[in-house]
Design a protein around this nucleic acid. Sequence first.
RNA 1: CGGGGUGUAGCGUAGCCCGGUAUCGCGUCUGCUUUGGGAGCAGAAGGUCGUCAGUUCGAAUCUGGCCACCCCGACCA
Length: 491
Amino acid sequence: MSKGLPKRSENYSEWYNELVKRADLAENSAVRGCMVIKPYGYSIWEKMQRALDDMFKETGHTNAYFPLFVPKSLFEAEEKNAEGFAKECAVVTHYRLKNNPEKPGTLMVDPDAKLEEELVVRPTSEAIIWSTYKNWIQSYRDLPILINQWANVVRWEMRTRMFLRTAEFLWQEGHTAHASSEEAIAETKQMLEVYATFAEEFMAVPVVKGFKSANERFAGAEETMCIEAMMQDGKALQAGTSHFLGQNFAKAFDVKFQSKEGKLDHVWGTSWGVSTRLMGALIMAHSDDNGLVLPPKLAPIHVVIVPIYKGEEDLATISETIKPIIKELKSYGITVKFDDSDAQRPGWKFAEYELKGVPVRMAIGMRDLQNGVIEVARRDTLSKETRPIEGIAAYVKDLLEEIQVNIYNKALNFRKENSFEVNTWDEFLEQIEKGGFLHCHWDGTSETEEKIKELTKATIRCIPLDAKEEEGTCILTGKPSGKRVIFARAY
RNA sequence: CGGGGUGUAGCGUAGCCCGGUAUCGCGUCUGCUUUGGGAGCAGAAGGUCGUCAGUUCGAAUCUGGCCACCCCGACCA
């Protein structure tokens, strides 16, 4: 392994690719467009899952699991949804292989084992789930249904990037059914809030909450809400979506319920999801040219302790001092690694743990021991200080909290510095090249959005929830507009 | 799927134009010295040169097919 990552400033995407590999998060696999998520990367994902799952449970949801395969006839039932995903579906057509008589030792698809009906590998599960909900729902007493599933999905992407866009990815998808439109809309908003809270409090990534424009809306939804984050290259990344499905899927799958008043009506639905793409967001939001920077709440290892010693005796002495500190740290729920391996020297370890984004590193040698001190280094600021050993565990506990806050603030400041109110088309053209979020007036039409995308590759990331009412004129057409939307180039 | 590029030891590479089975660095193993920011010296192991076919006495090198990855487009979370 050679040292040094590519520089963010020189080649952002190369920096990202290298970082993912070098920090042991993931690697390419033998399957085109699919990645192997390595243990270190997966443990970050597990932490995300845990936090999100707790929040889903807290808001009344339960987990279930639905099949990977969707019969084509079910898949096509909701027309817009089917259309939206048709171009990127993997399809199972056969159920058996056989020995290839032409080439001994190899297998071929058995032409006699053609499926009567093709199975679509789920790109999302609305179809299979709503076809099931039909059987579960008869009356208002059966509602609401609040289900989430953790699953893999497949979208046959032409161009893939680790975590950001892979042919197969892991996610969670919530699918709820309600007796009223109001309730479904409230659910849609609630889950968007859950995502925003998760992104900001756990990932330390500030997000803009908003509505998608019609162009960017989920196929089959009445309304799509999203959280958008800004990456360090000024590009936007959609970090999560929450959809109000109206009665679209209920109608497509004939899911009706009898109301208190005895009336028969279609059920109202929502769906919402976040994926392993969040890993990409996490990486690109905080990391630097030395490697990953992880927020303590998602870091697999919070603190690494590196002993600096000559010979077994020194190590034993240091270990004795360190033991109670480790114990105390663990009692605070802090994950500690005491790296006493002799295989690498301290300098190597320092670089390695920086690459992997461990939030706090402590180093201690005989000299420190005599002075009753220990060196504490922060990953987020790359600063070091010498602290008394006395009370160090409590200090580190507070430090981790401070790091979590600092990382968030850093990202928030970055976003502020790269968000602009843009009022003229010339300004727009100039600023979009530099990146960032461009808050602009827009005439509300898909045509205008399309045109802007064609000209600049920028799209409307969202219509922010907190956009203030303000008279203005569309950045491109000059037509009247009541509030600003966010334009940006996006991942 | 279009345009461009790359594929040689675990990783990164030289050699390819001008055919004669392979260079260097990192890592690995052994030993000694080391250990406060990616250690030093000495020795050693490790390669069907992406893959399949063709040309040739002989192919990493020339020709063709295929596969994978990267960059740029089109498509998308």
